[in-house]
Design a protein around this nucleic acid. Structure first.
Lengths: 196, 196, 196, 196
DNA sequence: AATGAATGAGTCTTCATTCAT
DNA sequence: CATGAATGAAGACTCATTCAT
C-alpha cells in the first residue's frame, strides 16, 4: 500500500492512538503494540514513522502543545478588543476550552508534565510552553500594572490556571468550566481592581 | 535488646529508597532491584514487607501524605491565634514548608498525582487528601464569608497553592518559597479584604 | 538503445553493494535495506533480482569465486613456461593478487568460509573451489614427484596459501604480499628441491 | 534455588551450550533462547551471568582460547626434551590435539575468527592469541636459525598450522590428524634441515 | 522496472516475583 | 529474617518479505 503522502496521515493516526491509550490505561501501561493496534496498524510501523517510543511520545506532546497554542491564538484573535483585561480573559478562556479540559487532554497533560521530570526532551518542550504562557500573561499585566506587581500577578494567574486545571484532572466528573472561569476571572478582577 | 521491631525500620528504609529512586530516575525506570539496592537490601525483601510493587508504592504515597498532614498540623498548632486569616496562612505556610517543596518531595508528589489517574488505590488516597485540604480551607473561609463565596475562595486558594507548587516543580532551580507565599497571601488578603 | 539488459547491471550493483556492506559492518549486521541503499536502490528490488537474501548471498559468493578463477587463469596464461614450478608459482601469485588480498575481498572470503559451515549452497560452492585449487596444485606436483609425495606437497601448499591468507585477514595493516610470496615460494622450492 | 557457588557452574553450562548451538546451527541462527534451553535454563539467566549476548560470546571465545593454551602447555610440558625441534613438534601436536580438531571446536574457531572482523573485543582476543602462537614458534626457531630466517620460518609454520586446520574445517569427514602432522612435521624438518 | 509503505514474526532484554537455603 | 538465584512473561525494536501503485 505505498500510497504517497501517507506520512502526515499515519503520524496523526498514531498520535491520536497514543493519546487514547494514555487516557485509557496510562502511559506506564502503554505499549507500542497497544498504540499500533488502536490505530489499526501493525507494531512495526511506529519505528518507521517515529524512530522509537521516545520519538512517538515527543511528537505526541508537541501535538498537545500545538493544540493549546492554537486555542489561545484563536481566542485572542476573536476577543472583542485589545484591552489587557479582555486579552487575559481570552487566555483564561482558551485554557479552559473544551479542547484542553476534556478528560483525555487533561490526562495527557498531567502525564507529560510528570514524565518531563526525567525526560530531557519533554522537559524542554514543557519549559518552552510554560514560559510562553507566563510571558503572554505578564505582557498584558504590564500594560496595566507596575512591573513588579505585574510579575507577581502573572505568576499568580498562571498558577491559578494550572492549579484549577490540575485539581480538575483528579475528578471523575466533568471539569466544571464555569466554576473555574469564575474563580480565575475573580482573581483577574481583583488584580486589576480600581485601574481600568 | 529484643530483635523485634525490624518491621518498621525495614519499611522505612525501603520507602526512603523508593522516594530517592523516584527522585533520581523517575517512577517509570524504578525497579524493585534498584530500590532494594539503594536501601542496601536484597530484591526479595520487598515482597516480604509490602507484598508487591503496588504495595510499596501505596505505602510510599501514604508516607508522603502523612508528612504533609504533620506539617499542616504543626503549623496550625503553632499559629499565634485562631483567626481565619492566621489559620489559612498557617495552611499556606505548611504547604510551602521545606518538607514539601524540596525537589525530592515535589517530584514524588507529581509522580503520585499522575500515577493516581490509573491506579485505584492511589486515586483514593489522593482524593481523600485533596478533600481534606479543601475542607480545611473552606471551613476557615466560612467563618468569614458567606457560604457560596467561601466555597469559591477555598477552591481558588487550593488551586493557587497547587498551581504554585506545580509550576515550581518544573524549575531546575530551588523553589522560591518567599515568592510563592507572597502570591498566596495576596490572594488570601484580597478574598478577606475589608472584613476581619 | 534498447532498455534491455538492466538485469546484469542491477545484479552487479547489488552484489558490489553486498561486498561493500559485508566489508564495512559484517554479514551479521548486513540488512537488505542497507545493501539496497548502498546500491542506491530500494529494498524491494532485491527480491526481484535474487528472490531472497540467500539468493543474493549465493550470487555474491559465486562472484568472489569467479574472480579468483579469473586471476588464476590469467596468471597461468601469462606464465613464461609450462614447467611445474613456474605454473605453481603462477598459482601462488594469483592467490596473492591484489584482487584477492585487498581487505574487502579477504573479509568476504572469510565471511563466506564461515557461513558455509551452515549453509548448504555456500558449502557446495566452497567445496568445489577447494577441490579445484587442490587439483590444480596436485596435478603440477605429480609431474615432478611420486604420487604420494605429490599429494602431501599439494595439501601442504594449499594449506600454506590459505593459512597465509587467513592470518593476513586479521591484520589491520595491509597484507604483505612480498612476504607471503617469499614464504610460499620457499615451501615450493623445498618440495621440489633437487629435482628441477 | 539460591545455592551459593553456582556462578562458575552456570557459566560453564551456558558456554558449553553456546558452543553446542554454534556447532549445530551456526552463530547467525544462535539465539539466547536456544542457548538457554540447550543448557536447560531459562532465557533470562544469560543476562544474569553475562550481561548480554556479547558478554556470552566473549566469554565463550575466551574459553576456547584457554583450552588451546592449556593443550599447548600440556604438550610442551610433556615433551621429552627442550630441543627446538621437539618443542616445535609439541606445539604442532597441541594444535592438532583432539580438543582442537573435533568438529565442534573447529567450527567455533572459524566462527570466532570471522566474527572478530567486526567485533572489537573478539578481535583483541584473536590478536593476542595470534601473536602468542607466533612468538612461541619464533622463539624456538631463533634458537636454531638466524633471526630473519627464523621469522619467516615462524610465519610459515604458523600459516601452515592454521591452513591445515582451516581446510580441515570444511570437510564433513573427521579431521585427518596423522596427515596434518606429517605435513607440518615435514615443513619443520625442511626448515631445520642440516642443522641440529 | 521500480518503489517504499506496511506487515508481523522473531530477538534481545528487562524485571516482578518466587523460593530454596 | 534475609538472600539472591532463577524464572518466564512481556516489551521494544529489527528486518526479510510482500504488494499496491
Amino acid at each position: 500500500m505505498p500510497k504517497v503522502g501517507m506520512h502526515p496521515i499515519r503520524r496523526q493516526q498514531l498520535i491520536r492512538a497514543t493519546l487514547t491509550t494514555i487516557d485509557q490505561i496510562g502511559l506506564a501501561d502503554t505499549t507500542l503494540a497497544q498504540v499500533a493496534s488502536t490505530a489499526g496498524l501493525s507494531p512495526g510501523i511506529v519505528s518507521h514513522y517515529f524512530g522509537d517510543k521516545d520519538g512517538l511520545l515527543n511528537a505526541t506532546m508537541r501535538q498537545v502543545l500545538r493544540e493549546l497554542h492554537a486555542a489561545i491564538a484563536k481566542y485572542r484573535r476573536e476577543a472583542r478588543d485589545d484591552l489587557p483585561k479582555t486579552q487575559l480573559q481570552a487566555i483564561i478562556d482558551a485554557n479552559f476550552d473544551d479542547s484542553q479540559v476534556n478528560p483525555t487532554a487533561m490526562r495527557a497533560w498531567l502525564t507529560f508534565w510528570a514524565a518531563s521530570m526525567h525526560r530531557l526532551e519533554l522537559a524542554r518542550l514543557q519549559r518552552v510552553n510554560d514560559r510562553r504562557l507566563y510571558s503572554n500573561i505578564c505582557w498584558q499585566f504590564r500594560r496595566a500594572l507596575p512591573v513588579e506587581r505585574a510579575r507577581d500577578a502573572a505568576r499568580g494567574l498562571a498558577a491559578m490556571i494550572d492549579g484549577l486545571w490540575l485539581r480538575g484532572s483528579l475528578r471523575d466528573s466533568q471539569f466544571d468550566v464555569e466554576q473555574a472561569r469564575t474563580i480565575a476571572y475573580d482573581y483577574l478582577n481583583r488584580q486589576l481592581e480600581g485601574l481600568v
